[in-house]
Design a protein around this nucleic acid. Sequence first.
RNA 1: GGUAACGUGGCCGAGUGGCUAGGCUCAGCUCUGCAAAAGCUGCUACAGCGGUUCGAAUCCGCUCGUUACCUCCA
Length: 498
Amino acid sequence: MQQKLNLYNTLTRKKEEFEPLHAPFVGMYLCGPTVYGEPHLGHARSAVTFDVLYRYLKYQGYKVRFVRNITDVGHLENDADEGEDKIAKRAKLEHLEPMEVVQHYTNVYHQDMDKLNVLRPDIEPRASGHIIEQIEMIQEILGNGMAYEVNGSVYFDVQAYHKNNKYGKLSGRVIEDLMANTRDTEGQSDKRSPLDFALWKKASPSHIMRWPSPWSDGFPGWHLECSAMSRKYLGTTFDIHGGGLDLMFPHHECEIAQSQASNNHTDAAKYWVHNNMITVNGQKMGKSLGNFINLSELFSGNHAMLEEKYSPMTIRFFILQAHYRSTLDFSNEALQAARKGYTKLMNGLNVLKKLQYPEDGAGIAPDAKLNEDLLKLTEDCFRGMNDDMNTARTIASLFNLLKKINSLHLGQLNIAQLERGTFDTIRSTYGELVLNVLGLQEEQVGDMDDMLHLVLGFYKEAKENKAYDKVDAIRAELKKQGIVIKDMKTGIDWAYEE
RNA sequence: GGUAACGUGGCCGAGUGGCUAGGCUCAGCUCUGCAAAAGCUGCUACAGCGGUUCGAAUCCGCUCGUUACCUCCA
């Protein structure tokens, strides 16, 4: 059995056993959102994927420092020199201060992530709050001869860097190919080479967001903030750097270059982890294609592509049912299936709460084979997690375990046939994986047991009196509340409707 | 054009050489006043062609198809 977590490292293109640099401490950085618009399903996937990694590492006993930034400056519309800052553009459109835009969409992001039960990071730094650190880093890179200043702007010199380093090591790009295929800047740029990227940009007179620097009043380049902030809070080398696959090039490639060219002289992170994209009809969901669905639209059902609204936990389960490195295709059918699967898993949690291990032993001998099988199922759950965080496999194993749990509840299997230890292991594994690691939570009203106990009393009475019209009425009323009655040999119980 | 992936049953989606993925859907059975729930059983698979192998969805080659990155994107 794989005891240890294995992670696919984009840098080596291999699954590697996770070994922290300074156990038990783990440093983890995730590229957060640029807060100029509503978060969509793609943001959710990235956040949920690394939330599960964060949770699982903590579950394994590591002391994790998780940093996820907020990009509030420097992210330009395009690579051209006249590219507009995304946030400034939005601010102009809505007649707001840029920081109002930033605050608004940061709040929305937090609210949506809270709904998805994504844990808040330990540190959530903003790019605009770390201008000094970014300037320092630029000075280091200039000092090491791998950047140059032109007209108040500073650019990273990719070719100078490439002499002693390998630009393209993360994304697998070949610099010569990039040179041959990159669009010509037609002499309009200050850059020496189209591959070079901005570390500092001089602000045009109309540009609102600006800070003083040794070179000009201006603003930092997009790639720089992650390098500066990850170093400040996690050190020159840390364990895990995450992000969406679309950030691999150029963003993460540039981060590595900046880190190597600064006084760090490291790749920044030991493990580079990338989640794949969400697709719609096989095409990437993205801003440029205009086929993205905001989280608020998913939660409310208010979007032309949506047949109904989908709860946050349905979304979370939908994301977790696929492996994070596969593309995941959006469809109403898939989300409806996810909703039912999620509910089934949560009903299992309620069943488990009610199961009691018989104290008297009841004189029944434990079934060795059964115990072995059940323990194997619990191990399978972890085997899935350890194999590159394969939550799809973990969930499949949980469903296998759930069948057994339901059989115990139904009396088809006798709890007394289990060893006490087996029973406890099942209960804790199922509960902790579902709630703490996968981060799924109950969405329905919490403790309805007391109230339902009363109703079920009436139900039982009506049944015993064969007052079936009354029985049917109770069932119908509860069904309206999303509760279904389960008549079993062993008694009457309830469950959420799937 | 360059680079990297992918193509699994009605739908979604795991699975890198031999051992049941799983969820949803559909059909049947058990239970049941009727249901529901749950359990059990079944139904459709590995794009095509060739090769390696005792044995391939899994390795190799070719063909077809799809996508991503190379410009902002999680």
